[in-house]
Simulated assay, not measured.
Amino acid sequence: MKPYGKLSQEELSELLGILTRRDPSVLLGPAIGEDAAIVDLGDKVLVTHSDPITGASELAGWLSVHVAANDIATRGVKPSWLVTTLLLPQTFSREQLKNLASQIRSAADEIDATVIGGHTEITPGLDRPIIITTAFGAGEKKKFFTTSGARDGDLLVATKDAALEGTSIIATDFHDKLLGKIDKSILENAKNFIREISVVKEALTAAQIHGVHAMHDATEGGILAAALEIAYASRLSIVLYEEKVPIRRETAQICRALGLDPLRLISSGTLLIAVQPESAPILIERLQKEGIKATIIGEFKKNGHSLLVKKTGEKIEIRLPVAEELWRLFLHT
């Protein structure tokens, strides 16, 4: 039986080989590690990306917008339009549907985006809603970014802190199990981390800085997977320093209590940015002026294996795929 989460690189490569078709108007199509497709519209480009929310969540509608929009913003393009598909169980009530729609509208308003279409249906076999949002944005033809744009010698900058989404999910879904091990106030603080998962602001800010070469949203598999995906797409290796990765007290305590690695825990809300060394201080200062913490956590190299330098100084070779810690937790609980 296949594990939950992303397909293996081998399976995904095989799938993309079947799906991909040459089209001169497609500047960037499906590829491992790339966040969104880019289509040539003449003097503009259309950027598009689709993402599902498959797990039960009180904020599923709100999350669906931000998760999809983040991947448009990593291209340096503002997410402007949304198409939403709602697959609903038979037991889904009208009040639940209204709440879902209100969440989608609220999230869209937060990033100044508009829902322009979609599809709704009652789907057999579901015990929870599945929400699929496709986001679109239009940008300048010569001013977009890709995951594959990192260069030898670039530094890796992370915004905010690691594992914000994962910490929030665990604090919510495992609240009762963690009570007694972790102070209630810590859990309540951690639940609110979900409100920080948008990276639109920092991505559009970073896009204005000379020397920024690539951006990538750290989602499933956490910062470790996202850093490796940039390196893989850019045909480079990454040296990641564990002691430099910013981790909040709440995340550290929850992961310690459950035996989880925060570097491998879903990290929506953390934007990874590849930037030339001389531009890194300018980038960090600009982000800080916007109220966004930013930290240098690694560096890209042309040769050698990708490495995680542990706090002890030990160097561990790292590679894709990275197993998501949240799936492991759910499977063993």
Rank of each mutant, 00 (worst) to 15 (best):
G118I: 08
F300I: 09
G42P: 06
L331W: 10
P129E: 10
W62D: 05
Q288S: 14
R21T: 14
L263Q: 12
S237C: 07
E58Y: 15
R256E: 15
A36F: 00
D109I: 10
T219L: 03
G153N: 14
A280W: 01
V322Y: 07
T172F: 09
K143P: 02
S8M: 05
I53F: 00
A274P: 07
S106N: 11
L187D: 08
D35W: 07
L164T: 01
L258V: 11
T134W: 00
N189P: 00
N99H: 12
L260A: 01
D71E: 15
N192Q: 14
D43H: 12
L87Y: 12
E121C: 12
T333I: 08
E229V: 01
G153M: 09
H332S: 14
S267G: 06
S102D: 15
K310M: 13
A107P: 14
S102T: 13
G313D: 06
D35F: 06
P79H: 01
I292D: 10
G221P: 00
E202G: 03
R195Q: 12
V65R: 01
L164A: 04
L224P: 03
A274D: 03
S80K: 10
E95W: 08
G29L: 09
K160R: 14
K302D: 08
P124M: 10
P129K: 13
G298L: 02
V47N: 11
Q96W: 02
L63K: 15
P321K: 03
F136V: 09
A158G: 02
Y232K: 13
N70S: 13
E220W: 09
V239A: 14
S234E: 11
T205N: 03
S64L: 05
I131C: 05
A323W: 08
F92R: 04
A163K: 10
L271C: 11
T114M: 10
E196Q: 13
D40H: 04
T146H: 08
N189L: 06
A280L: 02
I170S: 01
S234L: 10
H213L: 07
E196D: 10
L27A: 01
K142T: 15
L88G: 03
I182R: 01
E229R: 00
H66T: 10
K160A: 12
T295N: 11
G55L: 11
R75K: 15
K315N: 10
I254E: 05
A163R: 10
A163F: 05
N192W: 10
H305E: 15
I170C: 03
A218Q: 03
D152C: 03
A226I: 08
L155V: 11
F174I: 02
E285N: 13
E110F: 09
I32N: 12
K177Y: 06
M1W: 04
G42W: 02
N189M: 04
K142G: 15
D217G: 02
E110I: 08
T167C: 15
V245I: 15
S8R: 07
T74D: 08
S93A: 07
L308R: 04
L204Q: 00
E121V: 10
G149W: 06
R151V: 02
K191T: 09
I170D: 00
G211I: 04
T120M: 14
T147C: 14
Q9G: 09
I284V: 13
L283H: 00
E34A: 00
H210L: 12
S198A: 08
K6D: 12
L320K: 05
Q288K: 14
L156Y: 05
E242C: 00
L187P: 13
S57T: 05
V47M: 08
I316D: 08
I169L: 14
K160P: 11
A56H: 13
S57E: 12
T219V: 04
